[in-house]
Write a protein that binds this DNA or RNA. Structure first.
Lengths: 212, 212
DNA sequence: GTCTATACATCGATAGAC
DNA sequence: GTCTATCGATGTATAGAC
């Protein structure tokens, strides 16, 4: 009987290392790691949050570190797709100032309202010293594609007369990301308020250089 | 005899809760917290690193959290003085482009070479969700003074014709800090290289608007 | 494949000797 | 004021039943 389910390969419960439980464990681990960080998260709580036993967690993942790395890579891809959706392929069409404004709005709207993303940033930044190999997918899958896309776009718009489009892209992205870090991640909203649109407008004004 | 030292208030050993031991504990705690983070740091290791017993640590500090908060506040002040030294009070004299370039160089030189500062950034950012009250001194004593000083400077230079000096200051600082975060904290140097001076030059070119 | 039970280490914090 | 010794709780990881 039990051999039948194995042979059939159907998706009944109690079969193989069910993908359902793998997902449940990852989901539980996500909540725990994002809330408490790596060191303060116990496999006990992960198991409880996933609704399985601790031994099951260890049958699906080698150890705590393996579970953590799998989770982080998964989340990095997910957030990447959310921010950097190959959406309307013509989202780079139009006046550069309008394109840049739309991009900045999209990035900030996405980041400022996503508490999970902010917790994820805390986790990656906080553990980047002890898990350097985890910072890499974050850089490779999130920061790098955005910077390179913007770089190429800025380089393609000769009318902007930018002497260094790549460095300019860094300025654009850096200003926005640090804004999120300061206002949201570090809770600077209260003591160091700044309206979102003031930053965006100044950024676009500088880059598109309307005084020229 | 022991009463004499108390009365005299001299700095002989074995007197009061010696400031020496307090310093030793803080120094030991600094190494441990910066290396392993809050949760993974044990009071046992802190005591060992400080060369005292665990009980002594608890006689100088209320508990682990109290020790941690004292340490962070101390480090924030220290790093503030290092970067933002009220040095030559005329470091804002001269051509704006030269002033801004000197400031950017100073900030990046300071941050890129200071591994301890980078670990400190990881610690603050990583724990800012669970210790929001610790992010505040960091913002208040480091980010805010720098941004406000630059804000006022930019506002005072009317020839720059900046429509929003405060937002422009954010762009300046944000670009630099995110550069440090991406290249050093997140180890992006290898996969996403960018020469420091390219960022600085573009930043100054945009702000001083030489095409005008 | 998943569970319960457990081995073994280490944690934060304190009591009591000196 | 500082130490050693220890308490109680909790951590990771695994063995063995089903």
């Amino acid at each position: 009987m039990s051999s039948m389910s194995k042979i059939a390969g159907l998706n009944g419960p109690g079969r193989q290392k069910s993908a359902e439980k793998t997902d449940a464990i990852l989901k539980g681990a996500m909540g725990e790691f994002l809330a408490h960080g790596y060191a303060a998260t116990s496999m006990e709580r992960v198991a409880a949050a996933a609704g399985v036993s601790k031994a099951t967690v260890y049958s699906h993942f080698q150890d705590k570190q393996g579970l953590f790395m799998t989770l982080v890579r998964r989340l990095a891809e997910e957030k990447y797709r959310a921010v950097f959706n190959p959406q309307d392929s013509q989202f780079l069409q139009g006046e550069p100032s309008a394109v840049l404004q739309s991009l900045a709005h999209k990035m900030l709207d996405n980041a400022m309202g996503d508490k999970q993303l902010q917790s994820f940033m805390r986790l990656i930044l906080g553990e980047s010293g002890r898990f350097p190999e985890l910072a890499q997918p974050y850089v490779e899958n999130l920061a790098k594609p955005v910077i390179e896309l913007l770089s190429q776009y800025l380089a393609s718009r000769g009318e902007l007369q930018l002497s260094d489009p790549e460095a300019t892209a860094r300025i654009f992205i850096g200003s926005l990301v640090y804004f999120v870090i300061l206002q949201e991640v570090l809770h600077g909203k209260k003591n160091l308020p700044l309206e979102r649109d003031r930053l965006i407008n100044s950024l676009i004004e500088l880059i598109t250089n309307p005084k020229h």
